[in-house]
Design a protein around this nucleic acid. Structure first.
Lengths: 177, 177
DNA sequence: CCCTTTTCACCTAGGTGGTAAGAT
DNA sequence: ATCTTACCACCTAGGTGAAAAGGG
């Protein structure tokens, strides 16, 4: 592995929330127009070379068949700072003809989100080193099933309890979250 | 001038709205937190080399003293397409200590917005060619005075009539805009 | 007196799950 | 029967000028 990526470490943000969902069997809604993930996939990066350029992206590995990618763009990390990368604008869709750059997933199938840090190699023959210029990370607690409607009512209730945009469906508990 | 920029042409969007404001003497609000411009500075680009990289930015030339810049980032133009660049997220502030990347302007002073297309020269000694790698554009009808409160009531009325976010202050006319 | 700051009601824009109807 | 779609009320988030208060 290239020196620019071999020391890179990644920590999942909101890990306890992910685990809480994972215990119930996380589900993510997919729609024609595209739907955000909740919890948001968010990681804290360290060990980046402040002078190097990186491309950060995600893909979704089916615990069945195909694979899809999504990237939030370039990053040149700031010195003395743990870069936090949020995929909050990433959207999931079940529309095979989607042209909005959303992730196309198969409803009722399970997926493992994966995160990749790719060093942008400035050398002319960088293709030759492509295999050593990236590092990938998987967090098992972020696995989920793509659905068009929630299958498990307890997942629905946890989403309503923890997602600010679903506050309209809460019954009570003004301070619990 | 470099071939990558010498054929670049730019057309101001919403020209007639800018002219309507200009006839009254355009004013732009500046606040501590930063305020958007309205009308938005928006241009249509043509003559770009589809294989080249560009940086697009704006600055504000005082019809008195200092100068400030703001850039929306890189652009690699799509073939067969007139790229439209919108500076709708640009904000103006009068806070000299601003660290949000907003444009710091002097209230009660007049400014001329200016647009620059900069070719990202891949050559090692690109600094030597910096003077020939950009092209700049000024539209006199986009001049304005920075203010903390509107000075001309007719400007206020035109803003209310044409800015969707000010719809709450309209008296009538559901179809006029 | 002139200019700036703060707060506010009223918008735009868009992210939620519920619900009922539609599709297979 | 099972999964999908379209629409909805209800939120978050944030862009408006008005008005009143603050500052020199």
């Amino acid at each position: 592995k290239n020196q620019r990526v071999c020391h890179v470490a990644v920590q999942l943000e909101m890990g306890s929330l992910w685990e809480e969902f994972n215990r119930l069997g996380t589900e993510m809604i997919v729609t024609k127009a595209g739907r955000r993930m909740f919890p948001t996939f968010q990681v804290k990066l360290s060990g980046l070379d402040p002078l190097a350029d990186y491309v950060l992206l995600m893909d979704f590995v089916p615990l069945d068949d195909k694979r899809y990618r999504w990237g939030p763009g370039h990053l040149r990390p700031k010195m003395d700072e743990w870069a936090i990368v949020s995929f909050d604008k990433l959207k999931l869709t079940n529309n095979l003809l989607d042209d909005n750059g959303h992730i196309i997933l198969n409803s009722m199938h399970r997926y493992q989100p994966r995160f990749h840090v790719v060093f942008v190699d400035p050398r002319r023959d960088s293709e030759r080193f492509a295999h050593e210029n990236f590092k990938s990370f998987s967090f098992p607690e972020t696995q989920f099933m793509a659905v068009t409607a929630y299958q498990n009512h307890r997942i629905t209730q946890l989403k309503i309890a923890s997602n600010p945009f679903a506050k309209g469906f809460r019954d009570c508990e003004p301070e619990a979250w």
